[in-house]
């Protein structure tokens, strides 16, 4: 099969993407600054120098523990949060340079699904109004009748009865609310969905329903997903490729099957070993020690070295870069060749 340049251009590209956070200075710090003393609040680097390309039609799983920067990354991809450094590209064009129709193409084409189905829906709006709001904001429907028709279609698409549009969010269960959130993202015909822990708040039997819905919608509309999750077993099921994040940086990227068959980075190995499985009984737990270090004060060298069972002297001094270790596989570890 021959590929045209348009097919090989990633739908979303991240180039040297970083994001800092700094709290506003407190009074004492402002006074000291007035006196000419340097007393600015510390800078927290949540995402550091991420390069990543998401190909058309793929599901890219982004995995990491709380505080690793995965949600911040997702919010930059969807344009909710501007990066401090680097840029996001959409169909090969840098997002800040987009204008007019191209900009609208990005704004509508990239939609986000949030983790908490209780916090992401306005409790005072009817479900029909919540789902129709993007249409109104962007003037995408010519008549009230068309709005109603499209809301009905979107509800049916996510497996909810169109009559539900007269109800309020509190009248729905967690799984149903997550479907409402999906319908709202879906009504503008997006091409790319950033799903930020979309099933973490749901019960086991409901998780399966929503995962199935995501897979059905992807097949039907040839969507591309950035699927953010802390749950490796869910990512294994849904993702084509997986990126592992630790303390703001990507530490491993690999096709899902390869990553689960043969994890390269010690952190990925630790994560995989900790997935609870119904196949294992009375396990002798041997967990990775320590906790995620504070991003305000990251360790020198490889940020994983204080917890890494394989760490050598070099890991404490020199930060490993993300490099190719096999076709389509990258890992950031000094020991990639040895372990």
């Amino acid at each position: 099969m021959t590929t045209t340049p348009a097919q090989t251009t990633p739908i979303i590209g991240l180039e040297g993407l970083s994001r800092d956070f700094q709290r506003p200075p407190v009074l004492a710090e402002r006074l000291l600054a007035l006196l000419g003393r340097k007393a600015l609040p510390p800078v927290l680097r949540a995402v550091t120098d991420v390069d990543l390309a998401v190909r058309r039609g793929e599901v890219l799983g982004l995995v990491g523990e709380s505080g690793c920067g995965k949600s911040t990354l997702g919010r930059m991809v969807s344009g909710i949060l501007p990066p401090t450094q680097g840029r996001v590209t959409f169909d090969g064009q840098a997002v800040p340079t987009l204008t007019g129709r191209d900009k609208l193409g990005y704004v509508l084409g990239v939609q986000m699904i949030f983790q908490d189905p209780y916090a992401s829906l306005n409790p005072r709006q009817k479900v029909g109004d919540i789902i129709a709001e993007p249409l109104r904001v962007h003037g995408m429907a010519t008549s009230r009748r068309e709005v109603i028709e499209r809301v009905d279609t979107a509800l049916a698409e996510v497996g909810l009865d169109p009559s539900y549009k007269e109800r309020y969010p509190h009248q729905f269960s967690g799984g149903q609310r997550q479907r409402i959130g999906i319908a709202r993202a879906f009504i503008v015909n997006p091409r790319f969905l950033v799903c930020d822990e979309p099933i973490a708040a749901l019960d086991v039997s409901i998780q399966a329903q929503v995962i199935n819905l995501f897979m059905d919608l992807r097949d039907k509309y040839e969507l591309t997903y950035l699927f953010i999750s802390h749950d490796l077993s869910v990512v294994r099921h849904i993702a084509d490729r997986v990126a592992i994040m630790y303390l703001g940086r990507l530490v491993e990227i690999a096709p899902a099957a390869d990553l689960f068959a043969q994890p390269a980075h010690p952190y990925t190995r630790a994560l995989l070993a900790e997935i609870p499985s119904v196949k294992r009984r009375r396990r002798k737990f041997q967990p990775v020690r320590g906790e995620l270090p504070s991003p305000l004060n990251p360790p020198p060298g490889c940020t994983f070295h204080p917890r890494c069972p394989f760490a050598i002297a070099r890991c404490r001094e020199e930060r490993p870069v993300l490099r190719d270790i096999a076709p389509r596989r990258q890992s950031a570890c000094h020991l990639s060749d040895q372990i």
Partner: peptide
């Protein structure tokens, strides 16, 4: 048990309740 992703082939439809 059936709805656990690891108990289903990757990419297949989960057997949901």
């Amino acid at each position: 048990l059936d709805s656990i992703p690891a108990e289903n082939a990757p990419g297949s439809r989960l057997r949901q309740i």
